[in-house]
Design a protein around this nucleic acid. Sequence first.
DNA 1: TAGTTAAAGCAAAGAAGATTGCTTTATGGT
DNA 2: ACCATAAAGCAATCTTCTTTGCTTTAACTA
Lengths: 159, 159
Amino acid sequence: MGEGADKITFPVIAERAGVNPTTLYRRWDNVNALLEEVAVAALTRDGESAPDTGSLEQDLTEWADIIARDITRPERVRYLRAMVAARAETVSNCPVTETRRDQASEMVRRARERGETAPTASQILDHVIAPLYYHVVFALQVDPEYARRLVRDVLAMVR
Amino acid sequence: MGEGADKITFPVIAERAGVNPTTLYRRWDNVNALLEEVAVAALTRDGESAPDTGSLEQDLTEWADIIARDITRPERVRYLRAMVAARAETVSNCPVTETRRDQASEMVRRARERGETAPTASQILDHVIAPLYYHVVFALQVDPEYARRLVRDVLAMVR
DNA sequence: TAGTTAAAGCAAAGAAGATTGCTTTATGGT
DNA sequence: ACCATAAAGCAATCTTCTTTGCTTTAACTA
């Protein structure tokens, strides 16, 4: 490797954390395991609960905006890239996306209770979350307006 | 690193290619540069032109199905992961997504000439391509039925 | 055919990460 | 206060990737 951009290794992490590399080697099997643990802890913090504004469009817009602002932070982008790179064929499900699915389900459930027609949680993941990640990963623009557009799109599907 | 799953390095590639590692070190600055070049060459081969069946839904369905089958191949998944990991903040645009955008634009153009109402090329990328990549990356199911569902969704937006 | 230049192979040296045994420090219980 | 256990640090070693000088092969030209 040459470019000093990333290069995530135990020695590098240990130095930044002010601990001995051996400590890391002993606690995690490899860097990916560490990253995954950290990323999951960071990305699924309980502060992120689904909004409840009384309207699905409003809920989704706020939710998408929070996520958009979160995943565009440089550390998050790094985590995201690392997790994508780390994830082997064997890996089945990701706690982060599970959390997002739960939140989406919750918003959908409330909307339907109010009598609103709503897309499925899967549709929300596919058409709001996925495009957001896609834009982050391929360095395309991600801003509140884009998040709002995605929400409008997914709602237009069921109208 | 421990797991023998991936671990893409010059020596490994060189051995599989039957050439000397030095040759690779001399031609490319680092593994990511090589991967990007190979991935772009592989993923944008001219064979992949947009279908032209006379119906946008049919075009998109075939197109999405081709892409779905392509990006779920193990080598493609590896490329995808490697490219995501490689892509630094500095990187602006990806030739692969450019090609996809061109193909989407072409299908949309033809559909509109026929008088069909059609989503934008951006919408197609966001709601068909992005979810496909998302599913591949997070090891979720990707099959023809899923591709077809995405196409139905994106078309439902503009009806 | 001989000569020149570029690319590929070879081999040795250098650098960085990964692994392991042992020592030291810290924490909790008696 | 003492002991026991576990975690963290240290240091030496091993492995692997990376780099570089030199040789060899190949291709193209005079």
